[in-house]
Computed example of a mutant assay.
Amino acid sequence: MTVVNLTPSDEFEFKPGQGQVLLLACGALAREIVDLIERNRWSGFDLQCLPAKWHNTPDKIVPALREKITAAKGSYASIYVLYGDCGTGGQLDALLQEEGIERIDGPHCYAFFSGNAEFDRHAEDDVTSFFLTDYLARHFDKLIWSGLGLDRHPELLPLYFGNYRKIVFLAQTRDEELAKKAMAAARKLGLGYEYRFTGYGELETGLKSRAT
């Protein structure tokens, strides 16, 4: 099994087989995607991931994806993008429409891990919830606490999180240590805590429909 322990600033490539379909994804999904590819013995995918920390600077996402798409044209039967809108303000979907490329359904990974219909069902209750996935729980201190400057300016905490009431940990795996990290993050932010096991949700079904 390939163990993927990316930092938020890492790019990542994984080429396990025939490489008929190129997956372009956020680095926050790399561990889950590799696990699904290996567990299901899907040989037709190559994977390239952009840095997860670009969620804090989403203006970098679309230009980088454009470069990846241009470089990959002619080398793959198809390209599939594993991103939500992720703060690009519709620019990602405009690029993909221009290029004739599909992406996974959903506005963000919280929705497609939960299942888009299930996420929408909770939408009213979750309007004051801050979400963590396995990746975000693992890298909370670096990506969120330090990434937002709260380690240097804790006085900004009410500005960033004053309207939230709880952390909802959307867990892809049943990992007690990650649950402890998510609970610690909730305490650090002064928020309540809720655990929901999602598994890989529509990330898995989306990949399965394109596996060869």
Score class of each variant (00 low, 15 high):
R31M: 04
V62D: 05
A211N: 05
T205F: 01
A77K: 14
V4M: 01
D85N: 04
P63T: 08
H55C: 10
Q18R: 15
H55L: 09
L23H: 11
N163Y: 03
C26M: 07
D46K: 12
L159F: 14
K68C: 11
V127L: 10
F140S: 00
T70Q: 15
C86N: 09
A28R: 11
E204C: 02
R66P: 01
R196D: 12
L36W: 12
E13S: 15
D141P: 01
R39E: 15
P16R: 14
L95R: 08
T133M: 11
L24F: 12
H55K: 10
F131S: 05
L157M: 15
L65G: 01
K73I: 07
I79R: 09
D125L: 13
R187I: 03
L178Q: 00
H55V: 11
F140A: 02
T128V: 12
E98Q: 14
E176V: 04
L191A: 10
L136C: 08
G84F: 05
D125I: 03
F169W: 07
D10G: 06
I33G: 05
W145M: 05
A171D: 02
G44T: 15
Y193N: 06
I33A: 09
A137T: 02
W42L: 13
N163Q: 13
R41L: 12
G27D: 05
I79Q: 13
Y76W: 13
K180H: 02
A28Y: 08
G87S: 06
R174L: 06
C86Y: 04
K73N: 09
V168Q: 04
K53A: 11
N5V: 08
I69W: 09
E67I: 07
A211L: 01
D141N: 12
F197V: 00
A117W: 02
D120C: 01
I79L: 15
G44K: 09
D120Q: 09
D59T: 06
R187A: 11
L82H: 04
S209L: 05
I144R: 02
A72L: 06
C26Q: 10
G192N: 11
P8Y: 09
R31S: 13
Q97D: 15
T7Y: 10
E155V: 02
T212M: 10
F197M: 00
D93N: 13
I101K: 13
Y200N: 05
P107R: 08
F45Q: 12
V34C: 04
G190C: 11
L95G: 06
A72W: 08
D126S: 09
L23C: 08
M183I: 03
N5T: 14
R152L: 12
A117L: 05
L150C: 09
F131W: 07
Y110A: 07
T128M: 10
D35A: 14
H122R: 15
H122F: 07
R41K: 15
K188S: 03
P58Y: 12
F169N: 05
D105R: 14
A117H: 03
A182Y: 03
F119T: 01
L157P: 01
E102S: 13
A211I: 06
I61H: 07
T173W: 00
D151E: 10
G106M: 05
W145H: 13
G190E: 03
N5L: 12
E155D: 14
N116E: 10
G74C: 07
E99F: 07
C49L: 08
L150I: 06
Y80Q: 06
L24A: 11
T57N: 09
A71M: 10
A30E: 02
W42I: 13
Q172D: 04
L22E: 11
Y110L: 07
E202N: 00
E202I: 00
Q91R: 14
S78E: 15
